[in-house]
Each structure stands twice: as C-alpha cells, then as structure tokens.
Simulated scan of single mutants.
Amino acid sequence: MTRSASGGPASEDTASEPLEVRPHSPVDHIADPGPLGLAAFAMTTFVLSCVNAGLAPKSVEPVVLPLALFYGGLAQLLAGMWEFRKANTFGALAFSSYGAFWLSFAAYVKFIAPGLPAADAASATGLFLLAWTIFTAYMTVASVRVSGAVAAVLIALLATFVLLTIGAYSGAAGVSRLGGYFGILTAVLAWYASFAGVVNATFKKPVLPVFPTAAR
C-alpha cells in the first residue's frame, strides 16, 4: 500500500497524482522567522543596554532610535507575523509584542519624553517599564515549554525589566545600571539562540544545542 509523507496510507487518487500537483502544506515554503526575531531583539537590546550600563555615554542614546524603528521594531514585528502564519502562538505573540515595544520606545523617547514635566518623567517611564515587566513575567512562564535557550532569554529579560522599573521609580542610578548589565546578558543569550537557529537550519542538523524541553 502507498503511504503518505506522514506515515499514513495515501489515497489511490493522491498516490496516482504527479508530484508537482500533489497538495503541499501552505507553510512549507516559509523559513523559520525565529532567528530573525531573536537577532533583531538582541542587537537593539545590546546597544541600549550599553548606554544603561554606563559603558557608552548617555549622549549616544539617539543611535538606538533607528535600530528600534527598523530592526528591533519593524523586522521583529514582521517575524511575529510570519510566526502567526506558521501557527506558532508563542513566537507570534513574543516577536509582535517586543517589536511593538521597540517602536513605542522610539516614539516615547522622540516625541513624548521631551515634553513631560520633570516631576512626572520618572513615573511615566516607570509605568511604561512596569507594564512590559508584567507582560514579560507571563511570557517567561510560557517560555519554559519552548526551549531552554528561549527560557534563558526571557528570564534575563524579566530581571532586566524589574531592575529598570525599580531604577526609574526610585531614581537609583545604580539599579538602572545593573539593569543595563542584565540587558547585555539578555542580548547575548538572544544572539546565541538566533545563532543556534540559523546554524542548525543551514547545516540541516543540530550543530548547537537549544536545550529543547520535554515532549510537548
């Protein structure tokens, strides 16, 4: 008996069709958008975190804005849309949301923050970061069913947001600086996950571990 690609029996009609006219999965031609989304998130996070950690002067912070718009924002948002097409709920929500985070961050820094009263600026920034801390907290819970590499990124990101939120509300520069260092760690972990994804896909075998979870 002829069997289908999934291992089940193929119908006589399907088995007799030429290969070029047999039905294919509509997502067979779509590459994994995960490495793109992770790379876009990593680079933008790294540059901003270098400023937050004090490794780069505050005066160079505007260099983050074009990255936030076009790579961390637009490219990551596109990765999220492709994850929707591939029916990956976690990837779709994560990349779309963090892409929107970078777009909203660019808009906030460029258009909103300069016009805020000095007395309210810290609270506004703290509230913005607090909202993203809450979102990241429940995405961290979900990430443990994706892979160890992705879970490590979300855990480090959650610590980053918590520290930056506390630093913004309290005005404690040392706490915000520590958040910057955790942001750099987050970027390194995200770059590794992206690197592993693209290398494994290109070599068509597991070259670098991503530490998959138990059977889903």
Rank of each mutant, 00 (worst) to 15 (best):
M81Q: 11
R22P: 02
G54P: 01
V141T: 09
V51H: 09
A100C: 15
T45M: 13
A42Q: 04
W82E: 09
L65C: 00
L48P: 05
A119W: 09
T140A: 12
L36G: 10
V141L: 15
A149H: 02
I155R: 07
A106M: 08
H24D: 11
M43N: 10
G54H: 07
L157W: 01
Y98R: 11
A40E: 00
A68S: 14
V153R: 07
A87T: 12
A107K: 00
G34K: 06
P66W: 08
L48Y: 09
G54S: 08
E61M: 14
A106G: 12
K86W: 04
G115I: 08
A156E: 03
P114I: 07
G148H: 03
L77E: 04
A137Y: 15
F41A: 02
G73P: 06
L130S: 13
A131C: 14
G54L: 09
K110G: 10
A42S: 14
T45A: 15
S123G: 06
R145S: 13
F105K: 04
P117C: 08
A107C: 13
L55Y: 13
L129E: 00
V146R: 14
A40D: 05
P62V: 08
N52D: 14
S25E: 10
F46T: 00
L158Y: 03
T89C: 10
L74W: 12
G73L: 07
G126S: 08
T125H: 02
L103G: 01
G34T: 13
A56R: 08
I112S: 06
D120G: 08
V146M: 07
R145V: 01
N52Q: 14
N52E: 11
R145T: 10
T133R: 01
H29P: 00
S123V: 14
L154K: 04
A39V: 05
A94W: 15
L78H: 04
A39L: 12
L38T: 04
Y108C: 02
V60M: 11
A56L: 15
L103R: 02
